[in-house]
Simulated scan of single mutants.
Amino acid sequence: MSILLLDVDGTLIDSLPGIQRGFRHTLDLLGWPHPDQEFTDRIAGPPMETTLRSLGMSEELAQEGLQIYLEYTRRGGWADAATFPGTLELVRRWKSAGLTLATATSKGESFARQILEREGFLEHIDFLGAAQEDGPRRRKSAVIEHVLATNGWRVDTSDILMIGDRSHDIEGAAEHGIDTVAVAWGYGTPAEWATAAHTAHTPEDLEGIVHDWLA
């Protein structure tokens, strides 16, 4: 069995516009100053409470902010996103080729399901692995553990490949002995990609890397 673990935000879906609007809305309600644009351009990927804590918020305030952000997302913020060109076609080809596909996203489970269904990905995904919106499964490593344990995929880790765009994808997969392909069309930096086993600059690059990995 060859298994691909797919990040969502920054890998399959360009969700940054909606995440940024929800982030700014959260800061406004908390009365917290906005960071600079460079910071805001890097917020997609990690759990929102992690981002809020990195601004200097206490754990209590970050959790309050998380609830504000989740409510914004439930009211429609999840829909402010679009598919990266070429990624849906790539997922279709992988599924047709017999690969097992699962998401491993820090996005909340209901939000991930809604956007992946709307954009046409969900029918090609064997298992939707996502974070809990209100629960302990928030970090990428915990999401991957959930995916592996739920499906009984205690296989040789050489049979599993993570595809993501940020350092937390790479680090979370590494905790399970899984290599990562970093995609350069997402929200990471060259320094983050350098820690991955491979870097794909286009969907065609990614298809070639996966092809070679399967060989």
Rank of each mutant, 00 (worst) to 15 (best):
A197G: 11
I125R: 08
D80G: 05
L4P: 10
E64Y: 12
K140P: 01
R113A: 11
E109W: 10
D159T: 15
L52Q: 05
T11A: 02
L101K: 10
G77K: 01
G18P: 07
L214E: 06
S141V: 11
S167D: 13
L116K: 00
W213H: 01
L161M: 12
D36Q: 14
E71R: 15
R113I: 02
T87E: 05
R154Y: 14
T40W: 05
I13D: 13
T202Q: 08
G135H: 00
G172D: 12
Y72W: 13
L90P: 07
G22C: 05
H34F: 11
A173K: 07
R75C: 11
Q20P: 10
W78T: 01
I43C: 03
G56A: 04
F84S: 09
L161E: 12
T11C: 03
L16P: 07
F84A: 07
E38P: 12
T26L: 06
I3L: 15
A81I: 01
T87I: 05
E123R: 15
T40F: 05
D212C: 00
L61S: 13
L6G: 10
T195M: 08
V181H: 12
V8R: 04
A79D: 13
L52T: 01
M162G: 12
D9M: 02
T87N: 07
L101Y: 11
L70T: 10
R138S: 09
G76Y: 05
D165T: 11
R139E: 08
P33M: 04
I209K: 06
W213A: 00
D126Q: 06
D9W: 04
G45T: 06
G77C: 03
T103K: 06
R21C: 03
A44G: 02
A112G: 03
F84C: 09
G45H: 09
P35Y: 04
D36R: 10
D205W: 03
G120I: 01
A44H: 01
H146M: 14
H34A: 13
V183L: 09
S158Q: 14
R118F: 10
A104G: 03
E171P: 05
Y187H: 03
K140R: 07
Y69R: 11
L214W: 00
T189L: 13
D28K: 14
V143G: 07
